[in-house]
Design a protein around this nucleic acid. Sequence first.
DNA 1: GGCAATCGGTACTGAAATGGTACTGTTTTA
DNA 2: TAAAACAGTACCATTTCAGTACCGATTGCC
Lengths: 148, 148
Amino acid sequence: MLRVSKLTDYATVVMTCLAAAGDDVLSAQQLAERAQLEAPTVSKLLKQLAHAGLVASFRGVNGGYRLARLPSAITVAEIVTAIEGPIGMTECSVHSGQCGREPHCGVRVNWQRISHAITAALESVTLADMVKPPPRRGTAIPLRVAVT
Amino acid sequence: MLRVSKLTDYATVVMTCLAAAGDDVLSAQQLAERAQLEAPTVSKLLKQLAHAGLVASFRGVNGGYRLARLPSAITVAEIVTAIEGPIGMTECSVHSGQCGREPHCGVRVNWQRISHAITAALESVTLADMVKPPPRRGTAIPLRVAVT
DNA sequence: GGCAATCGGTACTGAAATGGTACTGTTTTA
DNA sequence: TAAAACAGTACCATTTCAGTACCGATTGCC
């Protein structure tokens, strides 16, 4: 199945928990309970998210994490990238010079186009969207993605 | 990195080779040479692609494979699905009842929406597009994807 | 009819990535 | 100074991935 890793999935859940907490600072332990995930796993995720600048960390007693920005200013694409690295559907669409076929390979550029489209799709959904209840029928968020 | 597996990547290359061959029937061995891939790997891929109805197989001497349809009628989404199974970004967006959070989980439905958008992006690119030379600047294929 | 070429299916294996755990260090506050 | 909490490193079990091997079934040609 074409999918993001479990950790990325967990990261979105943790981020939505933080978004729901508003400006409160939550410890990794508290977040683990709310997200129903293992504490060390959550801790590792928060570290990566902090490194990517998506959450702000506070050390010491009563320390913890908080979103670095408003939920509406954080996209799913950023979360995915923070955990998985750059988005690219194939190896050659990110790193060139791997496969010898490149000079005459029309597949490569097309995968790059597809990757861009998917990136755009992920960028169009913000954390605020994830927290909100699902849109009702007929109120879909219009998303226009151009494969260029 | 968010990506398809190598085998899926290989499958698109094999399919483009078949598309380039027109109506000719090519053996797994010939395709392996053209795609610059290991013969057993190509053979395995072709088996899966045949099972998915994307290629037609012919047994016996001078047997081999041929596209089951016109390149313009085969989408990248079909190739991905043939090799990787259903497209879904998270486990819970495909199989329900796995994580207890579902009743109150807004993340799930939003991942499903994202999955749909990505599926649409993959469906919008056909094998014919992959064979064609990359579009020139300003002649991008417009693709409108609605997240519903 | 027999042989060779080719697909079809199953099983196996080594390597890599994934996901989880443990431990130790550092910073901050009471 | 001690406790709470983040930060970093290392490690291990499991799963998945990619490749290989083998045997059976089918077809065409001699």
